[in-house]
Design a protein around this nucleic acid. Structure first.
Lengths: 242, 242
DNA sequence: GAGTGGTCTAGACCACATG
DNA sequence: ATGTGGTCTAGACCACTCT
């Protein structure tokens, strides 16, 4: 790891970058343990403290999860305690409830100007358009429209989406090897149009929370753009300003 | 340090707690430099690395700001680069613009059930009720109603609120010694009522973004509850899911 | 040059999980 | 008993800022 050439990034950051690249290559799958700090230190010829600092940063960014006595593990969307953190909607009483996803539309289309811009594609590049509803306790609360980079989700079908009880991101991770690491959301209040009103069981013109999300995988590469309409009559979007 | 159970907290955490208590006591004011890592290490009879870890955590929580070569400083809401991070509203083009706050109402009232619950007060305890408008580029975009713990903001008047160009939190910090450290927000889409519609220049029933915020000072003590109505016709609420 | 935070090392010991 | 992450030390040197 020590390089003779003049380099401007500290050792622990080079190690972090190497580990991220390894994750990207799929060297260790979601839920797997990565090598111990001691072993990595030997492998890179650095002290354990240096490896530790690299892993600390990655854990802070939710790419890895440390568990004392057991090891360090690759985060996974299947594990609620580590990677189930993108849905911020809670019922009024604040008590989280399992959600049920009901996809009902899936089609490959050419990217519109808006979608192309948000996903960093060229106009007309293939994207997968998905529509789904989300329910809490039997009540439909969210109408989502997803646009996925076509090259990465080539064989995605409605049947595949409907299989299993997993979250979408968990499915993307296990079936397509695409892991969502971070996302940026833009929120607005809008009036319900006819389609949304029908899906959510509200009147046309009723206020809905519009949530537009761009989701990124390793290297801040955008892979999903999503437009969700949330009915906030009995639920709210929670945000912690840390 | 703890008494409920024989659970021991690590050294660096005890040091962190001590530093937080010092900040709470006002030992170092906002913007001041705290003692250097070396000096603190001597003072506590620990190694510099242990002090460092305590400060690292506090910097990650935005209580302190490190500046290489200069020192470590107490965060302040007056400094845009460190503590001006609670307003998440941006114009559609994404380019931040300075905001102008126009308070127009300030009155001491007894806490309603809702306010008492959110602020951890008893029903009827004194709170300060403030109303203000926020503008971007001459356009009124936010109608805020604040409820402040009365004991901490005893002499707050409309004149004081109007003095200066500072943000409210900057004023609270310098004039009342109350520093907002973290906050929790709950967002909903609602229809504009008559008062809000008038202030924001929209029709009654137009969709508005309702943002309810509880803000906390040191020790997670709630000191402000706020209900804001955002007109999101040309602005959006930005949220990063890290 | 003096003082600060930032990186890195080598080694010790503690706390937790598992066989 | 062994292996893992978590804490702590003492000291070295680097990078940045100011005088």
């Amino acid at each position: 790891m020590r390089s003779t050439a003049p380099t401007f990034s500290p050792l622990y950051r080079q190690i972090k970058d190497f580990l991220i690249a390894s994750l990207e290559r799929g060297e260790w799958g979601p839920g797997d343990a990565i090598p111990s700090e001691g072993e990595l230190a030997q492998r890179f010829n650095v002290s354990q403290g240096t490896v530790r600092k690299a892993i600390d940063e990655m854990a802070a960014e939710n790419m890895l999860v440390r568990r004392q006595g057991k090891g360090t593990f690759v985060s996974t969307h299947s594990d609620p305690r580590s990677f189930y953190r993108f849905l911020r909607l809670l019922p009024d009483d604040g008590v989280a409830v399992p959600s049920v996803s009901k996809p009902f539309f899936c089609e490959k289309i050419p990217a519109s100007p808006e979608v192309a811009r948000e996903l960093g594609l060229r106009l007309g590049d293939p994207v997968i358009h998905v529509k789904r509803l989300l329910s809490f306790a039997g009540q439909t609360v969210v109408f989502d429209q997803l646009y996925l980079v076509g090259d990465l989700f080539n064989e995605l079908t409605l049947e595949a989406l409907r299989a299993g009880e997993r979250s979408l991101y968990s499915l993307f991770e296990s079936d397509f090897g695409v892991r969502m690491i971070s996302a940026e959301e833009r929120l607005r209040a809008v009036a319900a149009d006819a389609e949304s009103a029908g899906h959510l069981g509200v009147d046309v013109g009723a206020p809905l929370l519009l949530v537009e999300r761009t989701a990124y995988t390793y290297g801040n590469k955008p892979v999903e753009w999503r437009r969700g309409l949330y009915c906030t009559a009995h639920h709210y979007y929670r945000n912690d300003l840390g």
